[in-house]
Design a protein around this nucleic acid. Structure first.
Lengths: 212, 212, 212, 212
DNA sequence: GATGAATGAGCCTTCATTCAT
DNA sequence: TATGAATGAAGGCTCATTCAT
C-alpha cells in the first residue's frame, strides 16, 4: 500500500488524544494508540517520527497559534498610546481574552493536553511560557504607565509573576474543570474585574477594596 | 538484632527526592535511586514496601500535616463570630497563612514533590484537595457574611472555585519558583490584599478599583 | 509486511518444551527459553502473549483434541444399546483406547507436559478432568447395565473414582515412563483385561479371580 | 535470646506445611512462612539450613518410616514359604496395607506434601520409589510362584510397573481426595480384590472376568 | 508508505540466602 | 541463637523504536 490511507491519520490523532489524556504523555503507549486506531506502530513512526512527534503534531498548531494570539494581544495593547492604556484596558483586554477563550474552546482537547498531559514533552512549560510573556508585558506596562501612580516599589517582577501565574491558572481552570464556554466567559470576565481591582489596590496603596 | 545501616535511609530518601523531582513519579526509576544511594533495590523494598511506598514515606507526613494545619485554619476562622469575621479576616487569616508558609519552607522538597512530581500517586490531587477545602469554607463564609453585601448572585461555587484555584496556585508558585521565604511572605501578603480587593469588588458591585 | 522469522517459532516451542519439562511450568524461565531459541523475550511476548500463553500454545490443541476424542469415545459407547454394552465392551472400548494411544504418541511431548509440567497453569487438572469424565460415564454405565449383576452397593462413586484414577494413571504411565508405542499398546491391552476382571469381580461378588 | 523458643519450631513447621501445600515447594516463600510463624527467616536458616532443609524436616521422618514399613512388609511376605504365598496373600497383604493406611492417615499432611507438593525437592520421586520397590518384589514373587501358573510371558517388568503405578496411585488417591479413613480402608480393600482379580486373570490366561 | 515482529533495555518486584548485631 | 535488613540475581513483562518485507 503506497498511499496514506484516508482518515487513518485523523483516527490516530483522535486515539492519541484519548490515550495521552487518560495516562499522560509518559505513561501513554504507542502500541495502544496504534491498535485503537487500527494502524501499526510503524505507521505512526513514518507519519510522526516518534512518540514526541505524535504529541507535537497534535498540540503544536494550537500551542503556536495560542502563543501568537497571545503575543499579538499583548503587543497591540502595548502599542496604544501610553495615556490611553489605562482607559482602554478594560474593554480592549477583555476583547482579546474573549477571543482567546473562543480559541481555547475550539481546541478544547489540545488545551487539556497542554495543561495536564504534557509532562515529559517540549510543552511541559507551556503555561509557564505564557505566564512569562504576560509578565514581561505587564512589567513594561507598569514601567510605562505605572510610574505616575506607583507610590512604592511593590510591583517587582517576582510579584507580578506570582499574580500572573494565579490569574492564568484561574483562566485555564475553566478548561481543566470542563466548564461550558458561556459560564467560562462569565467567570473570566469576573476574574478580570477581580484582578483589576487587586492590581489597582496595590498600585494605589492597597485600600481601595475596603471603602467601596 | 539486624539493624538498618545508618544513614542509608536518609540517603535513599534524598536520592529519591532528587529522582522524583527530576523525572516525576512515573518516570523515576527505583534502580537509579538505589544506585545513587549505594543500596540495592531489595533494600528499598524492605524499607518502603514498593515504589509508591517510598514516595509516600517522603511526602505523607508533610501532606497530612499540611491538610490538618489548613483545615484547622479554616475552622478556626469559621468559628469566629460572623460579625467579627469581616474585621478579623485580614490579621487572622494572614497569621494562619504565614504559619503555613513557614511550614512549607520547612518542608520545601516535599512540597515541590506534592506540587510537581506526584502524578500517578495517591497525592496527585493534593492541590485540588486543598482548593476544595478552601472553596467549601469560602462558600460558608459568603453565606454567613455575604448576604448583607452581595448585590447579585455572582458568587457561584464555580466562580469561587476558579478564584481559589488561582489564589492557591499563586501561593504555591513561591515554592515552584524557588523564591526565598522572606520574599515569599512579602508577596503572599500582597497577594492576599490583592485578592481581598478583588473579592470585595465583586461582592460590592465591582467599581472599587477604578476610583482609587 | 513484517514476517515472523522462519523457524524461530518452532525453535521457541522446542526450547520451551525442553525447559518446561526440565523445570516445570513455574520454575521455567522465559529468558532461558528465549536465549536457547536465539530470540528475545520480547519476541515471545509478541508471539504468545505471556508465559502461560506460550505453554498453552504448545499444549492446548492437544489437550482440546484429547478431551474431544475421549468424550466422543465415552458417548459412542454409552449410545450402544444397553444389552449390547457388555458384549461390545471389549472390542469397542479397546478400539477407542488404541486410537487414543496413537494420538498420545503422536503428541508425546505435549502429553508429558500435560502430565508432569502443568502445575501452575490452566491445565494442572488435566488428568483429573479426564478422570471425572470417565467416572461420570462409568457411573451411568453401571446404572444402565449394573443393576442386573450387582449384588450389593459396593460401586459408589467414590470407589469408581479411585479405580478410574488408578486406571488412567496406569495408562498415562506409558508416556511418563517413555515406553515405545508397541509395548504401550500391548500393556494397555493387558491393563484393560486386568481392569475388566477386577471390575467384574466386584460386580459379581468378588470371587471370580480365584477359581479361574 | 539464646535458646530456641518453645513451640516456635512447631509453629514454623505448621505454617510451612500450609504454605507448601497451598503453593507447592517451588512457589512457596520462606518469608511468608516466617511471618506466619512469627519468626524470622534467619531463624529458619539456623534451624533448618535452607528451604529444602525445612521441607525435608517435615517430610523425611514420615517418608523414611513409610519406606521402611513398606519394605519390611514386602520382605516379610517374601520370606514366607513360596508354597504358602498364594494362600497367605490376601490376609497377609491386607494386614500390611491397613497398617500402612493407618500410618498415612496419622501423617496426613506429610503425605499430601509428598504426593502433591514435593516437585523440586529430593522427594519428588517418592511415589515412584515406592512403586519401584513394589515392582521389584512383585517380580520376585512372580518368579518364585508364577512359573507354575504363567502360560506365557505377559508379566514383564514393564507391565508390572504400569499396574503397580496404577494401584499405588489408586491407594494414594484416598489421601489426595481427602476421604475419611474408614471409607479409605473399605475402598482400598475393594481395590485390593480388584487388583487381585486382574492379576490372576493375567497369570491364568485372562478369562476369569467374563464367566463370573 | 504500511506493516508488525523483533529487539533489548528497562521496569517493578520477589526471592533464598547471608551476616552484623 | 534469633533477628531482619541487605543483597543481588532473577523473574515476568512492557516499551519505544527499528527494519525487512
Amino acid at each position: 500500500m503506497a498511499k496514506q490511507i484516508e482518515g487513518v491519520l485523523e483516527e490516530v490523532v483522535e486515539c492519541a488524544k484519548k490515550e495521552f489524556l487518560e495516562k499522560g504523555y509518559t505513561a501513554a503507549s504507542l502500541r495502544t494508540i496504534a491498535a485503537a486506531a487500527h494502524t501499526s506502530t510503524g505507521s505512526i513512526y513514518t507519519r510522526f517520527g516518534d512518540k514526541e512527534g505524535l504529541f507535537r503534531a497534535i498540540v503544536k498548531p494550537v500551542a503556536d497559534e495560542m502563543m501568537q494570539i497571545f503575543t499579538k494581544m499583548q503587543e497591540d495593547f502595548h502599542n496604544i498610546d501610553a495615556k490611553d492604556q489605562l482607559e482602554e484596558m478594560d474593554s480592549y483586554s477583555m476583547d482579546g481574552i474573549m477571543k482567546m477563550i473562543d480559541y481555547m474552546y475550539a481546541h478544547f482537547d489540545e488545551f487539556k493536553l497542554l495543561l495536564d498531559a504534557s509532562h515529559g514533552t517540549l510543552y511541559q512549560n507551556f503555561v509557564d511560557d505564557l505566564v512569562d510573556i504576560e509578565v514581561r508585558y505587564t512589567y513594561i506596562y507598569i514601567q510605562t504607565v505605572g510610574i505616575r501612580i506607583t507610590r512604592d516599589e511593590k510591583m517587582t517582577e517576582g510579584f507580578i509573576h506570582m499574580v500572573v501565574t494565579a490569574y492564568v491558572n484561574g483562566v485555564f481552570e475553566v478548561i481543566r474543570h470542563g466548564m461550558d464556554i458561556d459560564t467560562a466567559k462569565e467567570y473570566i470576565n469576573m476574574l478580570f474585574a477581580y484582578n483589576q481591582a487587586g492590581f489597582n489596590t496595590l498600585l494605589s496603596g492597597g485600600e481601595s477594596g475596603k471603602e467601596a
